[in-house]
Design a protein around this nucleic acid. Structure first.
Lengths: 212, 212
DNA sequence: CTTGCTCTAGGGGTTTTCCCCCATTTTTAA
DNA sequence: TTAAAAATGGGGGAAAACCCCTAGAGCAAG
C-alpha cells in the first residue's frame, strides 16, 4: 500500500487527484494540503511514501517546499506535478530533490505509474522533463538556468528599458551612452535570450515575471 | 440526468474532473475535449446540457470557443472553470455567453452545485466572479475595463499576431492580405490602444493577461 | 439611398530595429 | 600580471516599424 500526500492550492484539481489516485487499490491518500507550509508539516507528521506537489502554491512555493522535504524527510519521494513547461523549473526542482516531474497534461495513467515508480525508489520523468534533463546534462553547469542570468549588468539595464517600450535612442539618453552602444547592448540581449525582436523579449519577460 | 462535456487541455485535471463529476449519480460525462476546436465539434455532435470549459486552450481559446458555442448551440450552458482571477476574463466570458464562472481553487462540491444550477437554467458564479460582475454593472458599459473593445475583429487578429512577435510580413502571410494592409491594421491597433510600439503592446497584453 | 465603418491596398516618407563588421578602454578574474 | 570579459563607440546596410496620405469595395444602419 502506497501512502500519498497531495499538495496543490487548486481545490478542484486536488480533489480530482484524490479521486483519481483513490481509484487504484494500491494507493491510499493520507492527506491533502493547499499550501507549501502545511504540505511540509503534514508530510513530517504523516510520513507519506510519495508526495505529489505543485510548483506554484501560496505560503511556501513548491520549490522551497521540496527543498525542505528533501532535507527533513529524505525517505519520502517527491513527484512534481505542474503545468509549467519551462526548462528552468525542471532543473530547479530536480536540484531541490524531486524524484519525478510530470506535466498536468499527461494522462492519469501516467500519474499512477509515476506514483508507483517513486514508491519503489525509482524516478519518473515525463518525456518532456527527461529530454530537458538530458539536454542540460550535456551543458556545463554554469550555462544552466535562466538565460537572463547570462546577461551582464549593463545588458540587464538595457533589457529592462527595452521591455518598458523604450527605443534605442531613449535608452542611450537614459544611460548616458551613445546610441551605437545602446544598439550593441540591445543586439546582445536579443541574441543571448534568443528572441527575434522586442515584442518577443517582452513575452520572455512576462513568462519569467520580469515585467514590473 | 445531466449530460456534461468537459474541455481542458490538461489531461490530468480533465480526467480528475471526469472522476469527480462521475461520482454524482445525477451527472453523466458524455465526452472530453483537449482543445477548443474539438470542444465545439463534440458539443455540436453530442449536445450536452452543460459544458465545463477552461479559458486557455490550444487550437481555439476558451473565449472564442464559448462565443461559437453560444451562437451555434445556445441551449447548452457553459461553465467556465479557470484559475484566471482577472476581472477582464470574467467580463469577456460572460459577454461571450457563459452562464457560470468558477475558479479552480473552489471546492469540488461547488463544481457539482454549479453544474446542477446550470442544468436547471440558472446561473452560477463564484463569490469572486459575482463581485466582479456586480462592480462592473455599476459602471456604464462605455467605461468598462475592456482592453480591446474598440478593436475590430480583424484588428484583434492582428493584435494577437503582433503580441506573438510576428512581423508585419508574417502577419500578411498568415492572414493572406497584402503587407500594406497588415501594416495599416498594425498602425490602427497601436493607435487605438495608445501604445508606441510592439513592445508596449505586449506589455499591454500582459497587463490584461491576454498573453495566452 | 446615403452615411459611416471596415477591409482592402497602395504611395511615399522617416525612424527604428536588427544584423554584420571593427576598435579602444576599463574592469574582472585567473 | 596577464588574459578574458565587459563596456564603450562607430561604419554601413537591409529590413522592419511607424506615420502620414488617398481610395475603392462591401456591408449595415438609419
Amino acid at each position: 500500500m502506497i501512502s500519498v500526500l497531495i499538495a496543490d492550492d487548486h481545490t478542484i484539481l486536488r480533489q480530482g487527484l484524490v479521486s483519481l489516485l483513490s481509484n487504484d487499490p494500491d494507493i491510499r491518500v493520507l492527506a491533502e494540503a493547499a499550501d507549501g507550509l502545511s504540505a511540509v508539516q503534514k508530510a513530517l507528521e504523516l510520513k507519506p511514501m510519495v508526495i505529489v506537489i505543485d510548483i506554484s502554491m501560496p505560503e511556501l512555493n513548491g520549490m522551497e517546499a521540496v527543498k525542505r522535504l528533501h532535507e527533513q524527510l529524505p525517505e519520502a519521494k517527491v513527484l512534481v506535478l505542474t503545468m509549467h513547461e519551462e526548462q528552468e523549473y525542471v532543473i530547479h526542482m530536480v536540484r531541490a530533490g524531486a524524484s519525478g516531474y510530470l506535466l498536468k497534461d499527461s494522462a492519469s495513467d501516467e500519474l499512477i505509474d509515476a506514483v508507483k515508480a517513486l514508491a519503489q525508489g525509482k524516478t519518473y520523468f515525463s518525456q518532456y522533463a527527461a529530454s530537458v534533463l538530458a539536454t542540460m546534462s550535456l551543458k556545463p553547469a554554469e550555462t544552466w538556468d535562466d538565460p537572463y542570468r547570462n546577461l551582464t549588468s549593463r545588458e540587464r539595464e538595457v533589457f529592462h528599458l527595452i521591455i518598458e517600450g523604450k527605443t534605442t535612442k531613449d535608452i542611450a539618453r537614459s544611460l548616458d551612452i551613445s546610441v551605437k552602444t545602446a544598439e550593441n547592448h540591445r543586439g546582445k540581449v536579443l541574441d543571448k535570450l534568443q528572441v527575434a525582436n522586442a515584442a518577443e523579449l517582452v513575452r520572455y519577460a512576462a513568462k519569467y515575471n520580469l515585467l514590473i
